[in-house]
Amino acid sequence: MSANIFDRRRVNGPPRSVEPLYTDEGDVKPFTNGGRADGRSLDQLRPIFIKTGPLAVQPTFSPTAPSGSAYYEQGKIRISCAVYGPRQGRKSNPRMGSFDCDFQYAPFSCSWKRRPHIKGADEKEIALILEQAMAPAIRLEAYPKACIDAFVTVIESDGKFATISAAINCISAALADAGIELYDIVAACSMSLNASQWVSDCNQAEEDVSQCSLFVSRMPSADEITYLLQQGKTMPDQTDRAVQTCSNSCARVYAVLSRYLQASMEQPAS
């Protein structure tokens, strides 16, 4: 709008406008001075918070409410998941039920440029990854001909592999909240390789400068790894070490998940 146009019908603002003053904090480069930007140690995970049942409509049984839901936070990652089911499936298999997962980034959630409102190939692939990571843990033989649907929405993402791991943890919590029979809760954790050192639970800035990223999802009771994904080059012994360390981190995440789920049962009216 030209500063010279004077609109007599309205109260005009000042004719000249100036850009606000920004204090440039400067990008904090990850791994400067050998430490991490947020002060964590190399194998320290970001703090986790879980709340189950936030999407349930009071009273708990309503035709359109999800059977179970969970809200998950890990550092700056925020994810919400709703589970519907067991309900009539489209592909009805008389031997076992089916598990379907839908994953989407909220338009404001990612730091990288993406076309909003359009489901990209990466979201579709992550949905497949989540299905393959969670399906071994669900007792699908107990739900013949039925299907269980999980819908994951990422409200804020911080690290691609860390977000996928967080989504797995969130779905586990939502399935437990829905009362669906599981063999075990699946816990997942991610790591990245930076200058020959494995760093646990990296955020986006740290992942961007790493040579390789990896995440592992694990069922501790059966001691089974339900999913493993590595992207980037490593020497074989590095991968072995990473899988070991990551499995141990998964055990810690599992402990946190169990504690939160137990606490949610103890206070039913929250």
């Binding site: 007792r139 437990a176 029979e181 599981l182 063999y183 075990d184 809760i185 069922m219 501790p220 009771s221 059966a222 998940l257 169990s258 789920l261 137990q262 049962m265 103890e266």
Partner: peptide
């Protein structure tokens, strides 16, 4: 005792498994 899925509850020699449990 509140249990999460995947917790060991007992041996099949001593108990029967009821609803909400599985045997392995």
């Amino acid at each position: 005792v509140i249990v999460t899925p995947g917790r060991r509850l007992g041996l099949t020699q001593e108990y029967e498994s009821g609803p909400g449990t599985y045997v392995r």
